[in-house]
Design a protein around this nucleic acid. Sequence first.
DNA 1: CCTTGTGAAAGGGTTCACAGCA
DNA 2: TGCTGTGAACCCTTTCACAAGG
Lengths: 265, 265
Amino acid sequence: MATGRTHRPATRSRGIPEATVARLPLYLRALTALSERSVPTVSSEELATAAGVNSAKLRKDFSYLGSYGTRGVGYDVEYLVYQISRELGLTQDWPVVIVGIGNLGAALANYGGFASRGFRVAALIDADPAMAGKPVAGLPVRHTDELESIISDNGVSIGVIATPAGAAQQVCDRLVAAGVTSILNFAPTVLAVPDGVDVRKVDLSIELQILAFHEQRKAGEDVNQPGQGARTTASRTGSTRPAGAAAARDGRKGPDGDVPAVMPA
Amino acid sequence: MATGRTHRPATRSRGIPEATVARLPLYLRALTALSERSVPTVSSEELATAAGVNSAKLRKDFSYLGSYGTRGVGYDVEYLVYQISRELGLTQDWPVVIVGIGNLGAALANYGGFASRGFRVAALIDADPAMAGKPVAGLPVRHTDELESIISDNGVSIGVIATPAGAAQQVCDRLVAAGVTSILNFAPTVLAVPDGVDVRKVDLSIELQILAFHEQRKAGEDVNQPGQGARTTASRTGSTRPAGAAAARDGRKGPDGDVPAVMPA
DNA sequence: CCTTGTGAAAGGGTTCACAGCA
DNA sequence: TGCTGTGAACCCTTTCACAAGG
């Protein structure tokens, strides 16, 4: 679910499957909570529940890191916290820049989860000269002109793009040229990057559309019915024909005997 | 990469694989852009490039929807836009509520991508009485007390949670009890929901941690080196031993002959 | 000739179930 | 006894390569 290009196709980084890497932060969060409550050990079952996965998956995930548990007992919380942090590279500190200080950029700058886990906001950058110097989350906004020098001065290798879609590729190119090799993209665009640069994207609108798909399936015909019962077998009524459709089109066949499709004018 | 519980295990909704559903919004966006430029048809190769996937995958994805292309020619842009929209349930309008109008909630409320694709912000809800009535993105913020009535009055079935982590589960419970069956969660917590409710989560801090993992692999020993070359075979130097580590621990073995591990005090 | 649509193969990821060990 | 660690089976996803068809 990431990377514009260069998904590190078969080159699984150091033997740990990508799916496992994506879950390590989840385990880490659950473990941190346990640690704060001074819980000394935890079983795979308990930890799995706290992280929202099943225990077999968790044990298999941990097996890629090494044999860090004790049979009959469970896992040492502090020890695991450290091992996972190290594996994720969170024992070092990562300076990041956020480009595009609109509503979203400001929200990100204020987000506490940043600093708590090894990430440090090195600078906030915006193209609007009127923003320059204004403090957001305790940091003065810098102008885009300074982007390159900020990155090299701070040794930034991770950049966050929170600009409008139209500016994203251009910002991305400048970040990459200045030495950034990991990008978190909030702009609703596909970014093209050279090999060796990782891109992950977060797209609100896509997430909502996926939810809408499932929501549509749940409600066979009657949407907006506040009943919370699970309808596992969604009613197969096929197309919920919309109002504004016209201009019949022939020769099209749906996957399982759908009625001839229709398209809007 | 979603759903706290109830991942719709084998019950793939109406024959379309989950991985395909997750890409449909991507295709839709690329197609919409083509449509705005009045491009009449597009080949799988062109569209795949625009969407950031490969063409074989795209064709396979479309094959689950039906035979919507023309051999030797490609796909009719307008027609595909409509088909995908319908498949995703975007031909109807989905009222959503956003709960938690802090920095992030406000950013979401202002996010244009919402309205553009069938989603309508029915209400902004916050627990802070001081926020009540204040306009955000043109809508007055409503108090949490009104949550249930807002949901039932507007037939809301999709809720967005942008509260602090501590409040998320409680908000979630109330949303579900009031009839919401799809939740987009921005709070860094695992939400427990009953069967039949879908949860998708967006977690900034997790995305950054995944990037950090790959970034750490790229830089074998020397981080912050602004060279942008791709090092496909990450150097296998094993553990980048951090400074603050102490308290040696025996009997632990890493996955591939790591040195005996160490944990922090 | 060009591009779609799709069986078949290959590759990952998840789950099962139990051997192994404290 | 109880829980971890893991081969093996299963399932989902991606990729390949080519037949089908405008």
